[in-house]
Amino acid sequence: MEQGTVKWFNAEKGFGFIERENGDDVFVHFSAIQGDGFKSLDEGQAVTFDVEEGQRGPQAANVQKA
């Protein structure tokens, strides 16, 4: 798993971006967030995640709040 920081996340649209430790950004969809209840992330929040190849390039999977 990688570690990163939430760059931004739009809860209304259900997606955002995580900044990886290497400085690259990776797309995150709310469906990739682990846990119960409303799935959202806060700007600046530390997270761990896997990276999978999506239809439009790399995207975060198995996102967990650190």
Rank of each mutant, 00 (worst) to 15 (best):
M1Q: 14
M1P: 12
M1A: 14
M1K: 15
M1F: 11
E2V: 12
E2G: 08
Q3D: 07
Q3C: 10
Q3R: 15
Q3W: 14
Q3G: 08
G4P: 01
G4L: 01
G4K: 01
G4W: 02
T5S: 09
T5G: 03
T5K: 13
V6A: 03
V6H: 01
K7T: 04
K7E: 02
K7Q: 03
W8Y: 08
W8N: 03
W8P: 00
F9Q: 01
F9H: 01
F9G: 01
F9I: 04
F9W: 15
F9R: 02
F9A: 02
N10F: 07
N10S: 13
A11W: 11
A11P: 11
A11Y: 12
E12D: 11
E12I: 14
K13Q: 08
K13S: 07
G14E: 02
F15Y: 15
F15K: 02
F15T: 03
G16Y: 01
F17N: 02
F17D: 01
I18L: 09
I18F: 03
I18P: 00
I18Y: 01
I18D: 00
I18A: 01
E19G: 14
E19P: 01
E19T: 15
E19W: 15
R20S: 07
E21W: 12
E21L: 15
N22R: 12
N22A: 11
G23C: 07
G23N: 11
G23V: 05
D24K: 15
D25G: 05
D25R: 09
D25Y: 11
D25T: 12
D25Q: 11
D25F: 11
V26R: 02
F27D: 00
F27L: 04
F27K: 02
V28C: 06
V28P: 00
H29E: 03
H29C: 05
F30R: 09
F30G: 04
F30K: 07
S31N: 07
S31T: 12
A32Y: 04
A32E: 05
A32C: 06
A32G: 08
I33K: 01
I33R: 01
I33T: 02
I33W: 04
I33H: 02
Q34V: 14
Q34H: 10
Q34A: 12
G35D: 09
D36F: 12
D36L: 11
D36A: 12
G37R: 05
G37V: 06
G37Q: 06
F38Y: 11
K39R: 13
K39H: 07
K39Y: 06
K39A: 07
K39C: 06
S40M: 09
S40C: 10
S40V: 10
L41G: 03
L41H: 02
D42M: 14
D42R: 15
D42K: 15
D42I: 14
D42L: 14
D42H: 15
D42N: 13
E43I: 15
E43F: 13
G44Q: 05
G44R: 07
G44C: 08
Q45C: 08
Q45Y: 05
A46E: 10
A46P: 11
V47H: 00
V47P: 00
V47S: 00
T48H: 08
T48W: 14
T48I: 11
T48G: 04
F49V: 01
F49A: 00
F49T: 01
D50L: 12
D50M: 14
V51L: 11
V51D: 02
V51Q: 04
V51H: 04
V51S: 04
E52V: 15
E52Y: 14
E52G: 07
E52H: 11
E52P: 03
E53R: 11
E53W: 15
G54M: 07
G54F: 06
G54E: 04
G54I: 04
G54Y: 06
G54P: 03
Q55V: 14
Q55G: 09
Q55E: 11
Q55C: 09
Q55R: 15
Q55S: 13
Q55N: 12
R56Y: 15
R56L: 11
R56K: 11
R56Q: 10
G57R: 06
G57I: 04
P58Q: 09
P58K: 11
Q59E: 09
Q59N: 05
A60I: 02
A60L: 02
A60V: 03
A61P: 02
A61D: 04
A61R: 13
A61F: 13
A61T: 12
A61S: 10
A61E: 06
A61Y: 11
N62C: 06
V63G: 00
V63I: 05
V63K: 00
V63T: 03
V63M: 02
Q64S: 11
Q64V: 12
Q64C: 08
Q64G: 08
K65T: 10
A66Y: 13
A66V: 15
A66E: 09
A66F: 12
A66K: 14
